[in-house]
Amino acid sequence: MGEGVFMIYRLVLVSVIAFAIFGISSIFYAYEIEIRDSEAVILTRQVSECLAPEGVLNLDVISEEFENSILSYCGLSKERFYVNVKVLNGAGEIVAEFSQGDSGASWVKKLTQGAGKYDPGQMTFEHSVLIAQGISEIKGRVKMEVVVSHEF
């Protein structure tokens, strides 16, 4: 009887050790396919087309309430994303700035660089546009930063 109880105890112990070994190895060997950089590229294009269709950014159309919710303005999902758009005039001065999401995502990107699974996707993009405000149209540039965080 005593031997039997001891054997059960030993088997439980072996099971716990086996569970720990294979549990940990399955976490480390799980295959993760990284597409966040591609998502950042697509999102950059979507936001760019939304703000400046045909290459003209009309500042009168985008109301002030969307300054901090540019993804909502474009009708895009806002989970996991940080978008910052700076509209610059010919002299390089900021005419308008739009954003949405957690701005901390960009420094998290610097912190977790090379951390594989948790490394956010990032895209910075700059292109020229015609900025329309009132009746005037000036040449300017749009500087955009998009960060796609890990999905927890």
Partner: peptide, 17 residues
Amino acid sequence: LVGLIFAIFVFATAGRM
């Protein structure tokens, strides 16, 4: 018995990956 326990876990892990 120990071999059986390890085999079960090996197959479970292989299934996951």
